[in-house]
Write a protein that binds this DNA or RNA. Structure first.
Lengths: 226, 226
DNA sequence: ACCCTTATTGATCATTTGTTCATTAAGCTG
DNA sequence: CAGCTTAATGAACAAATGATCAATAAGGGT
């Protein structure tokens, strides 16, 4: 005998408390809304538990029954696919390639803005961990995302550095991956390994960028007060 | 006639023995040997399937029964623990801190040797993936490993850079993490995201190091032919 | 207020998976 | 060879898990 009424008993004790209690009564939402709520909750849950997390745990966290998930997704895989879409969709801002190529501004400032915004975009518990989980699971989405990133962001950066370089050194794409990896690794340390990491990413991003630019004889990023 | 048993056991591994050699005869190994074989197989298997891989799949791959696993490990968790030990144990060579601090040699050469050896040590399918899986699972081992690395390797590198620096710039530990992360990210791209990566890590490691050293006014690494 | 559509539930099924244990046989010793 | 220790097997159990479906009730339309 399983005592599944645990959640129910909990919710009955707190009928309409707004804190963390869920309504004991059955709530009927519009399909669009419910679906949105499920995908959002699934993102948070799978980021924590991994893609092997169970549909029962997820539904319990959402305050709905497990079978309801199957009214919106034919299979658990479909649900995970929806999580992928929500997470990856438009994660690469279409403005970034323009920003990087905008030669009316100093290259340092462009890269600084890009990496500050990029860090803000991906340095989240959900994104970092689900990206890693799906990468390990062999999801093709990861490779596609990174190919996309390489084409739209890293190659333009490479070209801009080559163009702006005033030292004898010239970078190859692998050098841009090194720049990128050094910054992304901050997020990996924080969200995958759960190590202490700086609250503000700006100083280390700026320093990393300056070190990179310096090698190619490009002027450093202006201090943030600029 | 003579050493029939032994020969038989050996030739048992070769598939084309008799017509329907499908039924694998039960092989009786010494506990130490069998345990070693299991842990090795488990490392390979869990690296591929993740720590949620099943004991049944593992035993099938090892060519033994699933229940035999429990003759050597009381629980699946214990088996995974054994995999951790096999993988992490002595992964940080005790000679590296000495190497890094050996001021009779140029700093660039020391760091180059260290990172070449370090890459050779951890850039393997098994290490990279299991480290990532266990990190995501929240295994304390990861944090301990990285703390260890920070204390024994990164801090000494920081001190050596500070000491050797001839430019106005001075690094903080986070800068060393950036250097480290940029290099480690090569392995992450290759083994987690399964992207194309250079076969020989030496050139990019050298270039990354030189870029780093250049910022602090430290002489570059000598070319490999030196 | 009363339908009536359908979002939601509860029960249930079929597998999967970790774990246990009595039984079997491999291979060393006398 | 015979006997004996114990490595190894095969069958089984309990809990967990993905998935299904008839029954229920929430809440909008009239």
């Amino acid at each position: 005998m399983m005592h599944r009424n645990k959640v129910r008993a909990q919710s009955e004790l707190t009928p309409v408390q707004s804190e963390n209690a869920k309504a004991p009564k059955r709530r009927r939402l519009s399909p669009a809304l419910r679906r949105e709520q499920i995908v959002e909750g699934a993102s948070a849950y799978f980021a924590e538990a991994g893609l092997d997390g169970t549909t029962r745990d997820l539904s319990a966290r959402l305050g709905i029954t497990q079978s309801l998930l199957y009214a919106y997704f034919n299979t658990k895989g479909e649900l995970i696919e929806a999580v992928y879409n929500r997470l990856y969709l438009d994660r690469i801002s279409p403005e970034w390639p323009e920003l990087i190529r905008d030669r009316t501004r100093p290259l340092g400032g462009r890269l600084h803005q890009f990496y500050t915004e990029y860090a803000a975009a991906i340095f989240s518990y959900e994104w970092m961990r689900i990206f890693m989980f799906s990468g390990l699971a062999g999801a093709d989405l990861n490779r596609r995302y990174l190919e996309h990133l390489s084409t739209l962001i890293l190659r333009p950066i490479l070209i801009e550095i080559e163009t702006a370089a005033r030292s004898p050194h010239r970078p190859v794409l692998e050098d841009i991956w090194d720049l990128h990896g050094g910054i992304v690794y901050i997020g990996i340390r924080k969200f995958v390994y759960r190590m202490a990491a700086p609250d503000d990413y700006e100083p280390i991003i700026r320093c990393t960028l300056n070190r990179f630019l310096h090698y190619y004889g490009i002027e450093p990023v202006s201090p943030p007060g600029n």
